[in-house]
Design a protein around this nucleic acid. Sequence first.
DNA 1: CTGAAAGCGCTTACAG
DNA 2: CTGAAAGCGCTTACAG
Lengths: 337, 337
Amino acid sequence: MGRPTIIDVAKAAGVSKSTVSLVLQKSPVVSPKTREDVQNAMAALGYVYNRAAANLRSAQVGLIGLVINDLRNPFFTEFATAVQMAISDAGYATVLANTDEDPALQARTIAAMIEHGVSGFIISPAYGDDAATFGPLERAGIPALQVLRKVSARTDLFPFAAPDYAEGGRLAAQHLLATGARRIAFVGGIAGRAVTAERMQGYLEVARAAGYDPLVLSGRPTRAFGRECAQWFADHPDYDAAVCFNDLVALGMVAGFARQDRRIGRDFRLVGFDDIEDAAQSYPALSSVQCGIAQFGQDMAAALMAWLRDGQRPAAETRTPVQLIRRQSSDRAGPGG
Amino acid sequence: MGRPTIIDVAKAAGVSKSTVSLVLQKSPVVSPKTREDVQNAMAALGYVYNRAAANLRSAQVGLIGLVINDLRNPFFTEFATAVQMAISDAGYATVLANTDEDPALQARTIAAMIEHGVSGFIISPAYGDDAATFGPLERAGIPALQVLRKVSARTDLFPFAAPDYAEGGRLAAQHLLATGARRIAFVGGIAGRAVTAERMQGYLEVARAAGYDPLVLSGRPTRAFGRECAQWFADHPDYDAAVCFNDLVALGMVAGFARQDRRIGRDFRLVGFDDIEDAAQSYPALSSVQCGIAQFGQDMAAALMAWLRDGQRPAAETRTPVQLIRRQSSDRAGPGG
DNA sequence: CTGAAAGCGCTTACAG
DNA sequence: CTGAAAGCGCTTACAG
């Protein structure tokens, strides 16, 4: 006969289904005795609340969609877990999905969430076909934040927030210059993407001001790419420093340099980006641009909650401050110094 | 007036709501002209399908709950993404949640998913109060797999599957012995947990057979703990090898050793566990016990699908094969050799 | 091929 | 404090 319903519970407890519903909602209006009878009946029957049915009548589902382009990257993992916890504290449930940088999968995922009645979205989008993703969101009129990457230009509809990448890149490049680097490269990041451009921008300014042509090694934001690049630098000793697109690339370079004679920190200075947990744990410890990603996640959750509850749509574009964390990898004295 | 419903669409298209429903279900019975009228009306009104309402009548929700104890650990991240993709290919949607090793959060998360009508679960559980988590699952009668960790003893209800950790530990310890290690330690893993015991077991056998007391440095499965332990080994040069609880600990040790005179691979041999992506990228590259976690994730997804669709409950306990991957960290010749 | 009616499991006024 | 009725947005037989 399938799962028991409130009608079954009502029969077993000898009350009406309205009364069962009131017990379910913890209404103070039900007498303790009745409440207990109903609860016993529910336990005896193995009653399971059907939230979909309840929501049908009473609007709000209390579900937030959290859609992430690459959950295997620790930067995004940390962001996602921070958001999820903040949302949980606010009394909402999170539906988390990884789109693996696939815009088609992202569009399918979001369409499914919309149909399931998700109340709001926080999206770190994959690059690619944005109409397939943001079109349905616009039509459904569901509040959605795009974070970390701006893919839809309609920030009036989909407010955008991200750390101030450009400032981070500037801090990194200037720091390397100040500690005596003569020739700096920029390593990693897919060419043509906004995030890459922003993180690179400060470096380009510094290189131009120093009077040499910038050198950019574009590539995937992975350890593997960083390792490859370390090999390249072995053959180009005129470079003595690099700003990396992210910490994964930088950590790959650390691993790659470990097999060469040149030592990171002493002979070659390196700054990463994101300040993921591993940055402080590597040897030499990696200097990095800290984006305060956990705090950023909490802020995004709070912003979406305010939008949902009080109708306060966030500003079209928000940039949050970043900070350079200096560690051994960019320290003239080098490891142990 | 809130979101348009099929009634609004029906009015706009000049048909009955049944016809709209048939169009929604792509029924071949509707004439092309009518279908087009209805679709135009839906587009004009910005109609959004309400899946919750549909499911109310027609049972299956097509949602799988994927509940993970620590999504920040790359081993679990890789597992989760593999499962999610396999489930997506099977035409189901995944609801992914991170419980951050908190059994209370896990219980709340799963209860919420049950109420939302999730059809089945794959759970890598947090240690702790299992009644709060598995009680509601049992009452609801929803198929649920526990994977990677056995927390509920009721494997008849909640089939358990994991890589053969004990065999992996044995392979690692025997490999170190065979390559000439004289005194081996076991590093990392919380004491008292089943996974720790299993991964340690082979090591204990080898140590006993070699005639020395086993040395176990228990601790959190993190890079930070591995780094600490590297310091300890600096003061205890009689040890020349270690099996680590997982790759994070081992990579922490690699970083810790990098600042000492002793070299991993040459003076000290190291084997990790899980073979996460970073293992191959570190320097020296890390030997590790490969659990084939992506394949394992696909298998778990397939097992749950078979259970849901054909009622085939998996065996109470499944162990999947593991494999030792030999790299520089346990190679006598050492890095570069 | 299309329409009128009942029902999915709840909640929500409204009586009593 | 409790019950009878209507309704949430769909699907599902069943007529026509």
